[in-house]
Amino acid sequence: MQPYNLTQSYQSQLAGYCRTGQWNHIPGVHTGHVQQYRRLVYNVIDDMLRNAFPVMSELVTKQEWDEVVQFFFSSHSCHSPQVWYMPKEFYQFVLNSQHALLQQYPCLAALMQYEWMEVELFMMEDRTVPHTTLGDVVFSKLVLNPEHTLMALPYPVHQKKATAITKADKGNYFIAGYRNTNGDVLFTDLSPALVRMIEYLSVTPLSVKQLIEQLESEFQLILTETDKQAVIQFFETAYMQQLIIGFADN
């Protein structure tokens, strides 16, 4: 009877071959057919990553894509039992390994962050907060869509084609990503002041008047009437697009 550690070792060798392509002899294996496992396993990884990062996979060359995917799969141990979540590990791997593609494509880190955030927002568990639709954007306390995330991007990957982005585009781009009731993911550009107001709303519902007062107090500034009208207009649009989902009861 074969000791279990030998069985384990053969299993490890087969799994290692699927990940790296490095073959070590295993008794009884059909060497022609075993290649199918590497092909099938790699296709699953490649398909999932292409689906999660469609713009990135078009931005880099085919050779660069194949190399980074292979490098990831052979050197990173995928921890999530849920395959749809695996692309997040790929994104983190590219960042943590300081992959050469990040130098070659300066907007790549921002692009991957943006593309993964779209997947995560689309798939994430439902979140609910108490709110009513009876209210007024100007006077009622606004309730923020809990299915949202704020992002600060160094490149405008949400505005321009990735191939057209250069180092000259480097800056501070703030956006809110959120999921509407149809399940669609939307993105809205934000100024730094609006980012701060959204952060206030993520803590507790506040009226536009309270948001403005809190901002003025924190940064020791006075908003002009034009600025205040722009804030009201922003939140009216945000309500229509469901970044703001409604109003607090009280």
Binding site: L6, T7, Q11, S77
Partner: peptide, 24 residues
């Protein structure tokens, strides 16, 4: 098995047909 050495492979690999594997 679809996971080995703490890494998921997201596909189904064949287990060696051994007595030790039966018990495990």
């Amino acid at each position: 098995y679809a996971k080995c050495d703490n890494a998921h492979l997201y596909d189904l690999l064949p287990i060696p047909f051994t007595e030790a594997a039966v018990h495990h």
